[in-house]
Design a binder for these strands. Structure first.
Lengths: 246, 246
DNA sequence: ACCTGAACACCGTTCAAGT
DNA sequence: ACCTGAACACCGTTCAAGT
């Protein structure tokens, strides 16, 4: 885990000759690369600084705070997920958004927990995404308070699922914990939990609460597809309730 | 933030007279109380140790690891959420589960991020919850792979929403960040984001990505209710697709 | 403006030693 | 079995000082 600075840079204080060597951008890229490689648990300001061959204080000059940097990283990952407007029916636009969002998270799974579980990172998602979802839902017939409700349900369905699918394993003794949970799952008492016992082969390590690997190793593809369908079907039912006079 | 140990205990090494002074249970309770009061960001093994008037190593003798303790805390919060079996139709049972789960999280909002965003904590949820959801979905007509898909959708819908609703604010300069986001939200360019601009009064600080307070200050009650309805409507549509021969 | 070098006040975890 | 006391190898952030 310990790495030397890649290049033995000048290492004298003072403003460098050819403009700034660092930038918020470059730092965020380095942080993302490090998180992709070693996970969010191994991320630290000092590690990123070492990676870039500078002192920790230098990183702080550019990004102010650890949380701000992580928000920047999350924004980078989610920058390109919004589908273009105006080419798809609202149902298909939303489905496409879900797909592109999951593709982005699958490329950077260790960032997933930031998206749903940190207000800062969540708040740095692209405005186009918000606009697009609202446009789709308006097309579906929502307005006012129902529009807000439908919007919140769409965002929660999408980011909530992904946050859970790629939620990280314990940092250290991963296999010990995995073995323990596998044991626990397979020794469930049939009399107390008959339904669970009956369907255990279908569920073990492939269902929430009952798994010891996350989406990186065992992706929940078909469940995510189903989640999209259920969400859209539910939204259509909601829209129908709003205009019973057909 | 600094507190003395409540009682100046003997402070000599060795096995105490009347059995163990500490236990995994007592430690988890203390941790939960501390997290409720000061947030997950202020949680540390050393703080809990100080709170209990013992050395950090003493805590480690009982709980092995920081993550394990947090999983224990999550389990404590979620211990009582499962509704009794056999009294409700499956739709109502699931709705009741959602309600009770949200009530539990609202009592301990700072624990929310553990539920969805940490595989360890997620894995320590009660088995009765799993059994109950599966029983409800079986009653709805699901089996085999569709059962697994429906199950994952239910859990993701429930915990995903709550994880997001109560996701924590930045640790330190909260109000500076809030002011900045509020500014950003209210200076959205109308020509680029017309739909968002039009509905901003309905959305600002009450919709994901557009808020600077979390569910503790600004709960998303009606959106959660709608989320339940959408999920159940979507599940019913899914069930209908499975038996087109009525 | 941009960076060094060092310091401050923390962490989680381990380990020998006590009783 | 249960706890002390101290240590190890880390953290994020701040700050004076350089150029």
């Amino acid at each position: 885990m310990k790495k030397k600075a890649p290049e033995p840079r000048p290492r004298t204080a003072g403003r460098p000759a050819g403009g700034a060597a660092l930038s918020k951008q470059r730092i965020a890229e380095a942080a993302l690369a490090h998180i992709d490689a070693f996970g969010l648990g191994a991320f630290s300001m000092r590690e990123i600084a070492a990676q870039l061959g500078v002192y920790p204080a230098t990183v702080h000059w550019h990004v102010s705070t650890r949380e701000a940097l992580l928000a920047e990283v999350a924004a980078t990952v989610m920058a390109q997920v919004t589908p273009p407007k105006g080419t798809l029916a609202w149902q298909n636009w939303i489905a496409e958004l879900f797909h592109r969002c999951r593709a982005a998270v699958r490329q950077h799974p260790n960032v997933a927990q930031l998206l749903g579980a940190q207000l800062v990172s969540n708040g740095s998602l692209p405005t186009e995404l918000v606009e697009g979802v609202l446009a789709a839902l308006t097309e579906a017939g929502f307005d006012g308070e129902p529009l807000r409700e439908a919007y919140n349900c769409v965002i929660a369905a999408m980011l909530g699922f992904l946050t859970m699918e790629f939620s990280p394993l314990p940092a250290d003794n991963t296999q010990a914990w995995a073995e323990e949970l596998r044991e626990r799952v397979h020794t469930i008492r049939p009399l107390d939990h008959p339904v669970l016992t009956r369907h255990l082969p279908q569920l073990a390590n492939q269902a929430f609460i009952l798994r010891w690997d996350n989406g990186t190793t065992v992706p929940l593809d078909s469940s995510f597809e189903r989640h999209i369908q259920i969400t859209i079907d539910g939204l259509e039912a909601f829209a129908r309730r709003l205009k019973p006079a057909q």
